[in-house]
């Protein structure tokens, strides 16, 4: 009868680890994703375009592949059950927070609050996965599954990822400065998310001015091969007219109010749950 084995297990930790491999893939995939979002600004000449008019359709098929690869690599090697269950529950809450008709590119209201706070509390990998799964789940509930979904998953993943990458320590009581930083990030994320989703929908929703159809030469349409600044100007106007005053600002305001009012208590609750050791 010896003392036997000794088990010393450190307190539970909730995170989706980003290792060297998955980190590299996440970085490359983000770059690729950015390209797939921003391609309208990168077409160098109308000639190349003429033969590849199917680009938006092809890209809509490529993004899911990239999202799937990144997610499979982030979860490779097994996710521990605590992380997985918390991801599941937070995903459900996020899906519930998204307004019923959030289909397409419409606004996400309070979803960013929890996404940013969870990314902050549990790190960039967790934030990325939570953003992606939240979008997927809310799409299941709101008839939002469509070509836009993988783009939304990627963009929301970036929002969570960014929250996890912000400087400062994530543990302990959040200071005022810390909260202010989160609010600033929330506002930036709200507008950038809106802009990048608009960039995706812009050529699709307005139509593309092509040789067949001249279109109003100076309209808001995307003109392939035009100087990128020119297209950027058109896009800027488009997004200003369609989204900035409405959805994007609404999202920025609701996100910052949510972070101010609920930031600290929610962070407390998240930390507590993650560390809860005893079985009830």
């Amino acid at each position: 009868m010896t003392a036997g084995a000794e088990l010393d297990v450190s307190p539970p930790e909730v995170s989706v680890r980003i290792g060297a491999r998955s980190g590299a893939i996440l970085a490359l995939a983000s770059l690729a994703g950015l390209l797939l979002f921003a391609w309208p600004l990168l077409v160098p000449s109308p000639t190349g375009w003429a033969e590849t008019q199917g680009a938006p359709v092809v890209f809509a098929a490529l993004v899911p592949v990239i999202v799937v690869i990144v997610l499979s690599q982030l979860s490779d090697g097994g996710m521990d059950t605590r992380t997985l269950a918390l991801l599941g529950v937070l995903t459900a809450i996020n899906a519930a927070l998204r307004p019923a008709l959030g289909a397409g590119t419409a606004g996400i209201e309070f979803m960013f609050v929890l996404l940013i706070l969870a990314g902050r509390a549990f790190g960039p990998g967790f934030g990325f996965v939570l953003g992606a799964t939240s979008m997927a789940t809310s799409a299941l509930f709101t008839a939002g599954v469509g070509p836009w979904l993988p783009f939304q998953m990627l963009a929301a993943g970036w929002v969570g990822l960014g929250a996890g990458l912000l400087p400062g320590k994530a543990r302990g009581r959040a200071t005022v400065g810390h909260l202010a930083m989160l609010v600033g990030y929330g506002i930036a994320a709200a507008y950038l998310y809106g802009a990048i989703m608009n960039l995706w929908s812009w050529p699709t929703l307005t139509g593309i001015a092509t040789a067949d159809y001249g279109g109003p030469a100076g309209g808001l349409d995307y003109v392939p091969g035009a100087p990128w600044l020119d297209n950027l100007r058109r896009f800027g106007l488009y997004t200003l007219l369609t989204s900035t005053a409405g959805w994007d600002t609404g999202r920025a305001v609701s996100t910052s109010i949510g972070l101010v009012v609920l930031g600290r208590p929610i962070l407390d609750v998240l930390h507590r749950a993650a560390r809860r050791a005893r079985l009830s």
């Binding site: 491999r21 893939i25 690729a32 375009w49």
Partner: peptide
């Protein structure tokens, strides 16, 4: 297997990215 999976994933995203760029730029 995991290293191989990561390498192929990397290669895949790389290929698709260059493909996508070329699709719009045609070089």
């Amino acid at each position: 297997h995991r290293v191989m999976a990561a390498l192929t994933a990397f290669a895949s995203v790389g290929c698709l990215m260059v493909f996508a760029y070329d699709l719009v730029s045609g070089t």
